[in-house]
Design a protein around this nucleic acid. Structure first.
Lengths: 335, 335
DNA sequence: ACCTCTACCGTAAACGTTTACGATCGGTTC
DNA sequence: GAACCGATCGTAAACGTTTACGGTAGAGGT
């Protein structure tokens, strides 16, 4: 395991100076086709690879971007993270991920600093948690920071981007309305999350738009467990609505179990629509009508936004639109 | 946004030379308590942070480790990745993640190289795919490489570690046996995955151990869709077994839907156990008996193994044991 | 033959650290 | 008082690049 070859080794072999090698590396002009060819060949011959640390040291810019997440294993954040890695790689950036244990002030600042230390050129924080977002707003950071948080506002130093989850929620609710339902409840997610907030407000907006009264709204924590127990309560108190828009597929799952176990049929007796389109939701009992977000598009666009910020470019920031996926858990109201 | 403070700035303020600052930074000896204090104060005052690129350049070692995954969003790999990030962070390492599009030779080598370029001190590859593993075996890499792949063997340059998934499969099958079942089928995952292979052989081993005949084994692709259609076939051909060990919770999900839609009740008519304990599996209809892996322990141990390899230390490599989670989808055979 | 211009290439300095070595100084030892 | 020693600190060189600048050779114009 010999020493890694350097730019000088290449130069020697190609019979040029290291300056010339540097030029072909950065494909600068001022180098003839013949010597460029020779250098390229030498590079290939000895398996030269550029030392990123040295480059970063002198240029003061890097080819990696930082990803900051809360440690939550929820479907949305994880999907976003993975999609971000993919597009970053395709654009030639490495990604270094770091997640915070506590989504609060100091630990967020510390994470941002750590990321900065590793030499990232920009940071995307996947910040569905409201608390985490404000920590980011209050933090200071040398490099551009972008936040993916539905419905959060941009500040001068922190760009925001997200999927239009409110639209998704409106789509889901409107679907229920179109099916003839008038008593549409919402099993909300946690209001500590932007996702929970905007999905709820989308539901409200759709109802308002249709001139329907606000239905029952219960706020939970995204878990099937909570939804299950809430469903049980509903049944026990005989308050089962005509239709419910669940804030997530997991929520829908728990709710449906509570209903089914008590002889209330979905969709015959109550229509349920979820949000997320997690794997397997098309094989729930019954297959779930839900809303699908396009993480790839989201990642693509937000990377564009960040790169734009890094290069001082201005980019379009219209959010991505989710789509409704109609399956069997929702049905036209019996006349 | 001024220039970042350097070691020299600190030295000037503290009234010492940069060498001394470097010494306190690396808490070397040969510096008096008084000056150390002064330097520390200066560092705090101007908010100095060490430039990693410069350090990496001269020391040629780094404080980050690389994670390589196939791009699959499957439950196991993703869970492992997230757990790895957490323990790496706690040990003071940053993680840079990269996933390969195609789990084949060149692209794996390229990914390894990219990781190496970013200056990682070691690499953990989450390689459930058999093809990917052999690509890793054949690849060359300057830094230590560890592979998390159940049932794959270690080579001189690639360490292997994993959870004992075969044990998990035996546990699941034995549970069915203990319940009195004698006709136990397996809805396997893909044989392109180590996970698929060892879960199958665990099932075989348990059956053999109990002196039971090998049951029906169908190999699929982990998807609920495949399981659903296979389940439909089974029903149509009247070959529904007494009990089924499904290779994953998603597989179980599809199968259960096929059964339920055809009036075959789980667990009354057929017992089903899954593998993974994905979120929500406790709220399936019925709540699923399954096998849970401990990703945190897995990550902890494998990080220990990698760090050991990086430091030339020898570490224990006994695999983690998964646990059986008994819920409602399995039941004693009717006598 | 002379000058100028262009295309190509070499050189030096800098980036912010670490490390090996040398210097200083007060105190010990003979 | 000379020599020595340990503790503490400063200095120079190196790590592998990029960048700004300077140099050379031949082409083209007069």
């Amino acid at each position: 395991m010999r020493r890694k070859p350097t730019i000088n080794d290449v130069a020697e072999i190609a019979g040029v100076s290291f300056g010339t090698v540097s030029r072909v590396l950065n494909n600068a002009p001022d180098v003839s086709a013949a010597t460029r060819e020779r250098v390229l060949q030498a590079i290939k011959d000895i398996g030269y690879r550029r030392n990123r640390a040295a480059t970063a040291l002198v240029t003061n810019r890097s080819t990696s971007i930082g990803l900051l997440s809360d440690g939550s294993p929820r479907f949305g954040p994880v999907g976003t993270l993975m999609a971000l890695e993919t597009v970053a790689r395709k654009k030639g950036y490495a990604t270094t991920v770091i997640s915070v244990e506590q989504p609060y002030g100091e630990s967020v600042q510390a994470a941002l600093d750590t990321l900065d230390d590793t030499g990232v050129g920009g940071i995307i924080v996947v910040a569905p948690l409201v608390d985490m977002a404000s920590a980011v707003w209050n933090a200071s950071c040398r490099v551009p920071v972008e936040m993916i948080a539905a419905g959060a506002s941009s500040t001068p130093n922190v760009f925001t981007y997200s999927e239009d989850q409110e639209l998704g929620a409106r789509l889901a609710t409107q679907h229920l309305i179109d099916l003839g339902h008038t008593d549409i409840a919402h099993l909300a997610g946690s209001m500590d999350w932007f996702d929970g907030r905007v999905r709820k407000s989308g539901w409200e907006a759709a109802l308002r738009g249709a001139g329907l009264p606000q239905g029952l709204c219960l706020e939970g924590d995204w878990s099937p467990r909570w939804a299950y127990e809430t469903g049980l309560d509903l049944v026990r108190e005989d308050r089962v609505p005509q239709a419910v828009f669940a804030a997530s597929d997991h929520t829908a799952l728990g709710l449906i179990r509570a209903f089914t176990e008590n002889g209330i049929r979905v969709p015959e007796d109550v229509s349920v629509v979820g949000f997320d389109d997690i794997e397997g939701s098309d094989y729930f009992l019954p297959p779930l009508t839900t809303v699908r977000q396009d993480f790839t598009a989201l990642a693509l666009m937000s990377m564009e936004v960040l790169l734009g910020a890094m290069e001082g470019r201005e980019v379009d920031r219209t959010p991505i639109a989710p789509t409704l996926v109609v399956r069997n858990s929702s049905r036209r109201v019996a006349s």
